[in-house]
C-alpha cells in the first residue's frame, strides 16, 4: 500500500500572499454584512463595556491630577534669625539648589512676612498696629520636585537642610504630608483594585459576546471543515471579525466619552457650584486611548481564538 499523502494544493489563483490577504479582508467584511444584526449587538456591548473602563480611567486620571495639584502644597520652609543680605541669599540659594529634590525657592523677608500676616487678618489689621517687622522671622519657601513629595523623601531632604549652618529652623507640616501621602496611596490602591475588577468583568463580557457571535455561526464553521477548509482558512476571517469588533467598540467608547466629557466641561458650569473648566479637569491621555484600542484588538482576537478552539475540541 502506498503511503503517499493527499496532495496539498497551494493557494495560487488569488495572486499570492496579497491576493490571500485581500480575500480574507473581503470575506470578513462580507461576513459582517451578512450577519449585521449580531455584529451590531456585539459592537454595542463592547462599546458599553469600554465606556465603563474609559469612564473609570477618566475619573482616576482626574483624581491623580487633583492629587498632584494638592501635592504642590507640600513645601519646606526654613527660618533665619536675621535678614539675609543679597550676597548671603544668593550663596544660600545656590547651596539649596544643589540639594537633590529642590524645585523652586522663594525668599520671604521679614517685611513680606508681616505683609502676608496682615492680609490673613483681613478686617482685623488694626491688631498689628505698632507691631514692628522684626517680630516675624525671614524665611525661604522651598518647593520640592514631584518625586520628593513623599513623607520619607521630605524627611530625608529636611535632614540634609538642617546641616546648613545659617538655617535656624525648618518646618514642613509633617502631619499634613503624612496624611496626604496615606490618602494618595489608599486612593491608588483602591483605584487599582476597582480598576482590576472592572477590567476583568469587561474582558469577560467582551470575550463572551464575541463567542456568542461565533457560536451563532457554528454551522458555517462545520460546513467549511467538511468542504476541506484548513483550520487557518476558517479562523482568519473570524479572528479579523473579532479584532474589528474590538477596535470599533473601543473607538466608539472613546468618542462617546469625549463627546460627553466635552459637553460636561462646557455646560456643567450652569448647574454646578464650580466651573469644571477652571477646575483643571482633563480628558484621558492619548496613551490611554491607544491602550484601550489595542486592548480592544487583543480581546477581540483572544475571544475569537478561544471560541474557535472550543469548536475544534468538540469536532
Amino acid at each position: 500500500m502506498s503511503h503517499a499523502k493527499f496532495k496539498r494544493r497551494h493557494v495560487s489563483g488569488r495572486g499570492g500572499v496579497w491576493g490571500g490577504v485581500a480575500y480574507f479582508f473581503r470575506r470578513t467584511l462580507l461576513n459582517i454584512r451578512q450577519n449585521l444584526v449580531i455584529n451590531l449587538l456585539a459592537v454595542v456591548t463592547i462599546t458599553l463595556s469600554f465606556l465603563i473602563v474609559s469612564l473609570f480611567l477618566l475619573v482616576f486620571v482626574n483624581l491623580e491630577g487633583a492629587g498632584e495639584l494638592w501635592s504642590e502644597k507640600i513645601q519646606v520652609t526654613v527660618y533665619f534669625d536675621r535678614e539675609l543680605n543679597e550676597k548671603e541669599f544668593i550663596a544660600l540659594r545656590n547651596l539649596i539648589m544643589t540639594l537633590e529634590g529642590t524645585d523652586t525657592i522663594n525668599y520671604v523677608s521679614k517685611g513680606d512676612a508681616l505683609k502676608r500676616f496682615r492680609t490673613r487678618l483681613k478686617g482685623q489689621e488694626s491688631l498689628l498696629d505698632g507691631v514692628p517687622p522684626e517680630v516675624l522671622p525671614a524665611s525661604m519657601e522651598i518647593r520640592l520636585k514631584q518625586a520628593f513629595r513623599t513623607s520619607g523623601a521630605v524627611e530625608a531632604y529636611v535632614t540634609r537642610l538642617k546641616k546648613i549652618p545659617t538655617i535656624v529652623e525648618v518646618q514642613y507640616g509633617e502631619e499634613w504630608v503624612r496624611r496626604f501621602n496615606t490618602f494618595m496611596n489608599f486612593m491608588r490602591f483602591a483605584g487599582l483594585l476597582l480598576g482590576g475588577f472592572i477590567a476583568l468583568a469587561v474582558l469577560f463580557i467582551i470575550s463572551n459576546t464575541i463567542k456568542i457571535t461565533i457560536y451563532s455561526r457554528r454551522e458555517e464553521v462545520e460546513l467549511l471543515e467538511l468542504v476541506g477548509a484548513t483550520r487557518l482558512f476558517i479562523r482568519i476571517p473570524f479572528l479579523l471579525e473579532g479584532m474589528l469588533q474590538g477596535v470599533c467598540g473601543a473607538i466608539l467608547a472613546i468618542l462617546i466619552l469625549a463627546a460627553v466629557s466635552w459637553a460636561f466641561l462646557n455646560h456643567a458650569g450652569n448647574f454646578l457650584i464650580f466651573n469644571p473648566q477652571e477646575a483643571g479637569l482633563v480628558f484621558i491621555p492619548v496613551t490611554f486611548c491607544v491602550a484601550l484600542v489595542v486592548t480592544g484588538i487583543l480581546v477581540g482576537f483572544i475571544g475569537s481564538l478561544t471560541s474557535l478552539h472550543r469548536f475544534a475540541d468538540q469536532s
Partner: peptide, 29 residues
C-alpha cells in the same frame, strides 16, 4: 491507497477536497 483513520487533523482537509458531499439537510448557509 490512503488509510483515512491514520490521517492527521491537518491532512483531513486535503482528503475532503477530493470528495463532494450532498448532505441530507443540504447545509446551505
Amino acid at each position: 491507497n490512503q488509510n483515512v483513520s491514520r490521517l492527521t487533523r491537518s491532512e483531513l482537509p486535503y482528503l475532503r477536497r477530493t470528495i463532494g458531499i450532498v448532505f441530507q439537510d443540504f447545509r446551505l448557509l
